[in-house]
């Protein structure tokens, strides 16, 4: 008993947390790496938006150089502004460069979420609660069971029909 003092704390909340603390540290380091990459794609995202905005504004200035003086002119100016901005931004959102960068941005965001989930799992385990993966396993099992029950119900129905005949 005296040779294994750590066993004394085996049911306490800190034991599991302490044994997994290395994992938390690793996750935090990886979060930093993911965050740097996330910021890279986020910067590119806003760069693309800003460049498109500036280009669209230039087009508006060329098409409607005069300051609108009455209500009708303001309406016409607004129409030009909206049409040019919608066209240019739709062209951007439709483009390969936007699609690729946006895909990578979301992917990095998901990696951050994954790290956060991993850290949360360590905390959950220290509180003797099921992890996300364990709950997912239950959902998966439930889904498979439901399918099996439906299949059995259909077979039972068919059997009853045959018996009636």
């Amino acid at each position: 008993m005296s040779s294994k003092p750590q066993a004394l704390a085996s049911t306490g909340p800190m034991r599991a947390f302490a044994s997994n603390s290395k994992k938390v540290a690793t996750e935090l380091l990886e979060i930093n790496q993911s965050l740097m990459e996330f910021n890279k794609f986020l910067t590119e995202y806003y760069k693309q938006l800003t460049e498109t905005w500036n280009e669209a504004q230039k087009k508006v200035s060329l098409k409607a150089p005069d300051v609108p003086q009455d209500v009708e002119q303001i309406e016409a100016f607004k129409r030009i502004w909206i049409d040019i901005f919608d066209n240019d931004f739709t062209e951007l959102f439709d483009s390969k460069k936007f699609g690729e960068n946006y895909g990578k941005l979301v992917s990095k965001e998901l990696e951050l979420t994954k790290h956060w989930n991993n850290i949360t799992n360590v905390i959950l385990q220290s509180a003797n609660l099921p992890s996300k993966e364990e709950i997912d396993e239950v959902y998966k099992e439930l889904h498979a069971l439901k399918k099996r029950v439906i299949k059995l119900e259909i077979e039972l129905k068919k059997k009853k029909v045959i018996e009636k005949k």
Binding site: G99, G103, V106
Partner: peptide, 11 residues
């Protein structure tokens, strides 16, 4: 365009 560039498995 967004769908084609999505890492849907990871999501």
């Amino acid at each position: 365009n967004l769908a084609k560039n999505m890492d849907v498995d990871k999501m």
